[in-house]
Write a protein that binds this DNA or RNA. Sequence first.
DNA 1: AATGAGTTCAACCGCCAAAGA
DNA 2: GTCTTTGGCGGTTGAACTCAT
Length: 324
Amino acid sequence: MGRSPCCCHDAGVKKGPWTEEEDKALVEHIQKRGGHVGSWRGLPKAAGLNRCGKSCRLRWTNYLRPDIKRGNFSDDEERLIIALHAGLGNKWATIATHLEGRTDNEIKNYWNTHIRKKLLRMGVDPVTHQQLPPDHHLDGASASLLPEALLWAAAAARLGGLDTGALRQAQLLQHLLHTIGSNNDATNLIANLAAANSVLNSSSRIVPSHLLQDQMNMLSGTNYLQPGYLCNTTSNFTEQDVVQQQLIKDMSPGTSTFEAAGPADQHCNTTAAFAARDVAPAVDMLPVQEFAGLMEPMELQLPNLCSLESDSFWKDLLEDGYRL
DNA sequence: AATGAGTTCAACCGCCAAAGA
DNA sequence: GTCTTTGGCGGTTGAACTCAT
């Protein structure tokens, strides 16, 4: 025999919205035990609640826990959710572990009510993160792996046990991905990916050659990196981004390539400007030299580059990518 | 002010893997 | 080793709220 049946099936157990009194009883009970719940099944009786243990757990984890952050999602949080969802899919609990004080339920709700609609308005499939065809009818093959997800997986596999140098490489790669996301020229993108591979660490490449080839094959048959996908996705918060604030300072107003960029890209603010100036060299330029020149000033700014995330964040994210 | 449509989000439902008996 | 429960997860619902007419 196993354990006794779950209380959830008991008749007379209250359901629906929680009252203030119930909240108070639950919080006081858990606090009395030093924040340790023990058995959720036994909790309602011990706390004097006519509720199912499962309902108590949900109420505590999604609403009453003291470390839950209230209020609107910040722009950084929104960007992080999109990036994590691109790699992890609907794994809300895993995504929630990367957003301090946010619950999986809250993130799921925010995705379904805000981000999902936003992406659809932009013509981006919120499931695959690929651009929808003009008629918005997806074919089955469009659910292929993302370039970003593939790169993350490759980076994670490559890094294994993280050290400072490897972490730095990952940060640079992350920034590169963000930058090239606003570039509409697949040829230049491939050239710069190859360059990045060479420059980041010539003795220990982040992106294995065969995966880079996969990227090239994928990009040649996809419209994922259409103008403004990532930069439009993030267009309402990149102004606050530390990296881009730095880039604004670096930009000279009369830079010809910036002025030559289309209105849509200019709308994408500094990310597009950065891409137009530095990451989209003519095909006949030497990509390695171009990229080396690009990375040099960035490396000096590294302490600010990923101010949003801690080292453990990156380690966790890379491990998630590896498990994909 | 009344009403209906649209939106939000707390809570529930059902499934599954892990663990206990 | 098998059966059963528990805890956790993702999907879904519906009451409350907001907005437009």
